[in-house]
Each structure stands twice: as C-alpha cells, then as structure tokens.
Amino acid sequence: MSETLPRAAVGACLDAMPRHAPATRRRGGVIDESAPVQTALVAAAVGILALLVVLPLLAVFTEALRRGVGHYLESFADADTQAAIRLTLMVAGIAVPLNLVFGLAAAWAITKFEFVGKSLLVTLIDVPFSVSPVVSGLVFVLLFGAQGVFGEWLAAHDVQIVFAVPGLVLATVFVTVPFVARELIPLMQEQGTSEEEAALTLGASGLRTFLSVTLPNVKWALLYGVLLCNARAMGEFGAVSVVSGHVRGLTNTMPLHVEILYNEYNFVAAFAVASLLAGLALVTLVAKSILEWRGGDQLERSRRI
C-alpha cells in the first residue's frame, strides 16, 4: 500500500492536468493576461481557508495544551469525560451499522427495482440534509417525550427514549441517514443491473449475486459513505442536544460535553475533548484520501470521479 499511494497521487495529478489544460488554453488569452487576478483569487481562497479552517484547528490544540501535556492528559481522567467518550463511541457504533444496512438496502431497491413511490423514497432520504438538526431533535421529543404522541404509552411500559440513549441513537441515525445511501445510489445507477443479470443466468442465487457481484462493485463507495457517516455521527451536536437532556455521565456525548465544560470555564478540559473531535476529523480526512486513491480505480471505471 505504501507503494501505491505516491504513484496514485502522481497519477491523480497527471490525470487532472490534461483534462483542464485544453479548456484553459482555449480561453487562454483571457487567463494569461489576468495573471494578477488569478493570483489574487488563489490568495483569497487560501487566505479564507487559513482563517476559517486552519487557524481554528490550531487554536483547538493550542488551547488544549496551554497548561502543558500533563494537564491535557489529566482532563481525560475525569469520569464524566470518559463516559462522554464511551457514549459517543456507542452511539456511533449503533448508528453507523444501522445506516450501512439501510443505505445498502435503499440504494439496492432504488437502483435495481421499479416500484411505486420510488421518487418519494429518494426525496425522503435527503430530508435530514435539508432539515435543521435542531428540528429533527424536536420531532423526536414531540413523538417520544413525556407530552409526546407516544409519551403516555411509553411511560406506561416504562420505556425511556427521550433524554436517554435510545433517543440519542435515534437522532443520530436520523441525521446520518443520507450519507451511505447518497454515496451508493449514483454509483449503482451508473452500473445498472446487467452484471447481476449475468450472474443470475450463470446460476448464482440472489444472495450470492449480491455478495459476489454487487458488493465488490460498490465496495469503495460504501466505505467512503461509512466514513462520512461515522464522522457526522460522532460530531453531531444539534439534534443530539435536543434529545439528550444533558445528564452528565449519562446522556452527554462528546460534542455536548465540550459545550458543558466550556460553559463552566473549564477551558483546558473543553479543548482537550474538542481536540479529540478535531483529531477524528483529521483521521477522517486522511482515510478519505486513502480511499480515493485506493478506490479511484473502481470509482473511475464507473466514471464517477
């Protein structure tokens, strides 16, 4: 793998150049003459990115380490902090597999079958992207809260959803629904059904066809979707904040815990937890790049990248 990365990276660069070159040349006169404008635009982009992305990221780590590594590490000894980390891992650990299965099933159904209400399903998958996460959280409170639609029934049966872990999982699943499905649908649409049909005519069962033909064909896109889904599941604040109830050590996920610590002027601890989330983001970025390199071959063959 260490061997393929640089080569793939170089390949990607070489790949990108000729595609843009002719267009640049065609309008070349204009662009050559306005080199200063070009420089200004690039500088602006880099500047804005530095100001809005790099600087805050650096600030997180600086603040976290302001009173030394000892203090930084000490923050993680706190029981509530550890509980928050465990809870975040657990919620993501439940939400991501659920959405993996749902995303695969939805993409499979949408791209390989004809059925009524198909376009409605496609639209519904996008709802979590278009609705504010806070609203999503509120919906769950309205449904499952004490005064909610199912509130009485739930209370009677001693089931606690809102202000408890099930609520957190529900809210997280809801906001991360689109990631896997959206990644798979265009790819599977592009690939059509003929490979599956070929497998069937060769005698393969439906399950065998799915495992040996469909899945390998979407492997990289699936991993990519899972990665994005996971990043969002761990980082989600809005929806989770509404359904959490902020019970320390019980229903506080990492993002919520950061806010509480910050509001308590416990800056080092707040930024220490925040640095974990920032670290997660960096790891995600690296993993994403690796996936793009490794899976580029497959994704390219399906003409997606």
């Binding site: 003929s194 490979e195 049909e197 070929a198 497998a199 069937l200 005519t201 005698g203 393969a204 069962s205 033909v213 390998p216 064909n217 497959q298 063959r301």
Partner: peptide, 17 residues
C-alpha cells in the same frame, strides 16, 4: 438460474472486478 441458458449481453456485462 434453473433454465441453463447462456446469455451474452449487448454490453457484455463482464464482472469488472
């Protein structure tokens, strides 16, 4: 699966991987 037909698709439909 049980018909035992050999089908060659217009686009070949070879397994890419």
């Amino acid at each position: 699966q049980a018909r035992r037909v050999g089908f060659v698709f217009q686009s070949y439909a070879l397994f890419k991987h």
